[in-house]
Amino acid sequence: MKSYQAVIEMKNISKYFGAVKALEDVSLQLYSQEILGLVGDNAAGKSTLLKVLSGVHLPDRGRLLVGGNDAGIRCPMDARRVGIETVYQDFMLAPNLDVVANIFLGRELTKWGRLAKLEKKGMEEKAAKILKDLNADLGLLSNLVMSLSGGQQQIVAIARALLYNPKVILMDEPTASLSVRAIEPFLELVKNLKSIGCSIIYVSHRLPDVLAIADRIVVLRAGKLVAEKRKLETSLEEVVYFMMGIENQNQKKKAQEN
């Protein structure tokens, strides 16, 4: 029996940028070990929602609960502290540093207190372990990230997200910088993240990908949550209709005729 404990609960979240209602009264739960596909047209509010969760934006209204408690997220580091990690579209890597350094970027293992001497060996071992758990082979860990392929850089970004056993990983267009060949193994990898206890919010324009891996799909349109469907109960067609705002049968027919 799967547990339906909500890891994240957004209650009536609104976010305005001047007169623009980027998010309006959005309520959403993310359950344990679930992949939630978040779709919508451009400017539907997907990115804003992720940025609220990752602490980049503060919501103007509404509550954000993590594990049942008020999260108190005010900046990206706060989000990390409560176990919410983000994998960005452009991976946010330092090309001049090696794989280990990128995985530990900003959160290095150190000794000697405030002097903060790097524990290079400890970091190497931990990085190797995470990559092994991901079944990923990046060659030498001392390779600079700039020498890696897009797919390999993606893995570095995910390994970084997994560093401190997160509860939730937010993925913003994670396949946008990948070659077609790299997408299939990546989706496999995302599914495997569930089994190690992560919940994932997956934002993508590539609807077939979302339908392939998501357990549940949420559609945003003009800042509002317009549909929430279990994957088995919906289809690509229906999701597209929700995204475009064509919900009733008559409109559907018209759209098909056109």
Partner: peptide, 10 residues
């Protein structure tokens, strides 16, 4: 190497 990434990573 990447100022934005560095800032983002804390």
């Amino acid at each position: 190497g990447n100022e934005i990434a560095a800032r983002n990573c804390g």
